[in-house]
Design a protein around this nucleic acid. Structure first.
Lengths: 146, 146
DNA sequence: TTTATTGTCTATAAACTAAATAGACTTTAT
DNA sequence: ATAAAGTCTATTTAGTTTATAGACAATAAA
């Protein structure tokens, strides 16, 4: 399961992706996405530190996307907030740690299975960009109307 | 990430799958897989309650597989110990819960993305049976020797 | 230059969960 | 009777997640 923080981050980003050149104040996003305001503040700050968002302080300020919608993908967001995508530390690339349960990692079928799952997952999450998500939402909307 | 409990359970099952008709005492599995003994006890008990293992009490007792290696798959084990396979409650079938961040679930692209990920994950984990894992391990072993 | 607005930062509370351990009890073969 | 094994309940410990409070800094506009 993703943390709420990560899920909130994704929804906030998707919301901003709808008008990718505009600036948003925390309150707007908080209300649009039903995310506790103070909690959202820290999330946006983290996204800013990671280079996905920019901000402008003071009156008339707010947050805005630093990258275009095709450049922001869920794999990056998930890694930022929840760390490893792999289900098991020994199957992670960016957050690798050896396990104690098998004698020889190179020959551990459990690890192999979770490596494959990790690879498939990363591919899918990388393909989920703000752009592709918003396109999909449009498709779902028209499908529902018919 | 899987809980350690779940990872331990998987390794214990794979270990038992190597001699699928034999009985194992907790200590043997604990030492073979480097799993804290008392912790493993509660895990095996849970696997028993779920019908995957049987047990015999008293001297000469132990745990044994209740199903054949092709009948035990990782999807079931993960669900038993960690609950939902989906990354987000609104994308889970067996542990569904609605989220608050979108107005209309039917049209939420975030949910859609995680539904697809869930489906792919479940398929992969279902294909990972004790049998297939042990076969894979044999293959990895011969590959390494060459 | 004051004021209102908005982001930044630090600290901390509250709730929950994971991981592990302890110990008493029960069952069974010998 | 005894030793070996699983069963069950409780509890500890530590860590994480989720959320909030409040002081501070920056900026635009009146």
């Amino acid at each position: 399961m993703l943390s709420k923080k990560c899920k909130y981050a994704i929804h906030a980003l998707v919301h901003m992706g709808k008008r990718p050149t505009e600036q948003f104040v925390v309150k707007d996003i908080s209300e649009a996405c039903n995310i506790p305001r103070k909690f959202l503040e820290s999330i946006l700050l983290e996204l800013k530190r990671a280079g996905m968002l920019g901000s402008k302080q003071g009156k008339g300020g707010g947050y805005f996307l630093r990258r275009t919608p095709p450049e922001i993908n869920l794999a990056d967001v998930v890694r930022l907030f929840d760390g490893a995508i792999a289900a098991v530390p020994c199957a992670s690339f960016k957050f690798y740690e050896s396990c104690d349960e098998c004698e020889d990692e190179d020959v551990c079928a459990v690890r192999d299975a979770f490596l494959q799952l990790r690879n498939a997952t990363v591919e899918m999450l990388k393909a989920d960009t703000l752009e592709s998500l918003l396109k999909k939402e449009a498709i779902l909307r028209t499908k529902k109307k018919r």
